[in-house]
Design a protein around this nucleic acid. Structure first.
Length: 118
DNA sequence: GGCATGACTCCCA
DNA sequence: CTGGGAGCCATGC
């Protein structure tokens, strides 16, 4: 379905596409998603996109963590994300942190050009 | 067009 | 480990 994609900027669409391609049981860092979308320094924008889109799109937003493998949310939201990750078999310690080396997903360079997911 | 914002990241103490 | 400060930049008002 790509009905609403026309209102989104190319960068946003690439970000959404990439996030949708993260396999179950894997995660990506905000900066990594941004880099895959073409702008390695737009990590904050990725976070912003997730914040505004996660409720309108069926995004696996919980598979996006900061670069240290930690959950960047706080309070209830952090607990919610933690549970979702655990449901996928991802192990998180008391500091809401996972082993990035073990779970990080590395997308193919041109994967986002397809735009088939939005 | 300008300015504030932030689910980030990097660097140093 | 924690904490503070600076840089970055697409988005929204």
């Amino acid at each position: 379905m790509k009905a609403e994609s026309s209102t989104l900027t190319p960068f946003t669409k690439r970000v959404l596409t990439i996030i949708n391609q993260i396999p179950i049981g894997h995660v990506m860092a905000y900066g990594q998603v941004a880099a895959a979308a073409g702008n390695p320094r737009a990590a904050r924008q990725v976070a912003r996109i997730l914040h505004s889109m996660s409720d309108k799109y069926q995004l696996p937003w919980h598979r996006v963590l900061n670069k240290t493998g930690k959950i960047s949310l706080r309070g209830e939201a952090a607990t919610r994300q933690r549970r979702l990750l655990e449901q996928e078999g991802i192990v998180i310690n008391e500091q809401n942190q996972v082993k990035m080396a073990a779970y990080q997903y590395i997308p193919k360079e041109n994967a986002f050009d397809l735009g088939e997911y939005i």
